[in-house]
Design a protein around this nucleic acid. Structure first.
Lengths: 191, 191
DNA sequence: CTTGTTACTGAACGAGCGTTCATATATAAT
DNA sequence: ATTATATATGAACGCTCGTTCAGTAACAAG
C-alpha cells in the first residue's frame, strides 16, 4: 500500500472527527476530491473506514482499538498472522456505566495479595449492585478503604488481601460506595 | 438540565460520529434545527461538545473518558465534588504506538509476585526499545515467556516474579519481541 | 508504437450543511 | 392581565458536502 492510514488516524485524533473528502485530499496531497474518494474506498475495503448512510466517513473495525493476539506462555501466536484479528477499545471494554465510573489511584499495600499494587489504578463503578466477594470501596466508621466484601453470621465485614491487615468488622454503619470493576497498571519506562 | 447528554453519547457510539444539527433535532424531538443549535450551545458550555473550525460538532472534554477522582486509602475525595474533574481515555493513556501494540492474555503464575495474575491482560508493544528491568515478551531456546529482563556479567537473562520458577539463562539466542507497557484486569461479576 | 490499466484531475449536480433572523409559543414574575 | 424571559419554530442564506462523469497523465505489457 502506497498510502497508509497514519495521516488519517492523526487527523482523527487531533480533530475529533473524520475528514471530509476535500480535507482527505489535502491530507494526502491530492488535488482532486475524487482521488480522496478512491483512497477512502481502499480504506473501506480494509475496514479501516466505513461510509455511513449519509456518506460520511466513520471509523471501521481496523481503525481503532488494539489487537488481541493470544495467550502468552501457552503457545504464543506468531506475530506473522496478525492480520485482521479482533480489535477492541479498552474504554468500551472496561467501562460499562459511563457516568458512574471513576478512576482511583491505589495507595498502600493492603490488597497486594490480590495483585493490586501501590500506584495501580482501579476503575470503580458507583453502584449498590455489589456482591459478597467483590472488591469494594467502603466507608466504615468514618474511614474509606478498598477491601474484599465478606459476610459472616449475616453481617458484612471487610477483608484485606494482606495478612498484616486485620479484618474489619464495622462497629457502626458499613457504607458501600463503589465496586471495583477493573484494574489498570501503567509501567513507566526504565531508563 | 432538562436535556442530558445520554442520547448524544448513544448516537455517537452507534454511528461513529457526531450528529448534524438536523439529526440532533430529531434525536431530542425538536422540529427545528435551531433548537438543536441552542441545545448544542448548551453542551458546548459544559464542554461536552465543541464546534470545530468548520462548525461541525466534535466531542468535548466531558464527553469521553472517565474521571480521575483521587486516591483510595489516603483521604478519599468526596463524590460530591465530582464536577469537571480530569477526564481521560484509557486507550490514549495506555497505548502509545498504536500499530505495534497488542493485548495478550496471561496464563500461568510465573509473574504473580509482580501482581500479574492468570487471566490478566498485558498491553505489549513490539519494539526493540527495551531496558533492563522491563517485563518483556521473549523467545529463548524456542520457547516464549513473559519475564523480567535482567543482566549479569554483560549477559541478559530472564527472571520470574515467583520463587518457584528458576532464572532463565539462555543457551542460545535471546530474542526480545515486545515490552509490557501496561496491565489490565477485568473483574467478573460475582453472582 | 500501440494498447490497456491504473492513478489522478477537474468540473458539475443536487442535497444537506451550519448559521442567522424574525416570529411564535410557553413559562415565570410582577 | 401584563411584562419579561426563556424556548421552540420555520424559512432563508451561502457554502461545502458526497457523488458522478468525462478527461488527462503515468506507466507497464506486448
Amino acid at each position: 500500500m502506497k498510502y497508509t492510514k497514519e495521516k488519517l488516524v492523526s487527523f482523527f485524533k487531533s480533530n475529533g472527527r473524520m475528514p471530509s473528502y476535500s480535507e482527505l485530499a489535502k491530507l494526502y496531497g491530492f488535488k482532486s476530491k475524487n482521488s480522496a474518494y478512491s483512497l477512502a474506498s481502499n480504506f473501506i475495503d480494509q475496514d479501516i473506514l466505513r461510509r455511513d448512510s449519509k456518506g460520511f466517513l466513520i471509523p471501521g473495525e481496523q481503525f481503532n482499538g488494539i489487537q488481541i493476539l493470544g495467550t502468552v506462555q501457552a503457545g504464543f501466536p506468531a506475530f506473522a498472522s496478525e492480520e485482521k484479528g479482533e480489535h477492541l477499545s479498552l474504554d468500551e471494554w472496561l467501562v460499562n456505566e459511563h457516568d458512574a465510573t471513576y478512576l482511583l489511584r491505589v495507595s498502600g499495600d493492603s490488597m497486594i495479595d490480590a495483585g493490586i499494587l501501590e500506584g495501580d489504578y482501579v476503575v470503580v463503578e458507583r453502584t449498590q449492585d455489589f456482591s459478597v466477594g467483590d472488591i469494594v470501596i467502603a466507608e466504615v466508621d468514618d474511614e474509606w478503604t478498598m477491601k474484599y466484601l465478606r459476610i459472616k453470621n449475616n453481617k458484612y465485614y471487610l477483608e484485606a488481601a494482606n495478612n498484616e491487615y486485620p479484618d474489619i468488622y464495622p462497629k457502626g454503619e458499613l457504607k458501600i460506595h463503589a465496586v471495583v470493576r477493573s484494574l489498570v497498571r501503567k509501567y513507566e519506562k526504565n531508563k
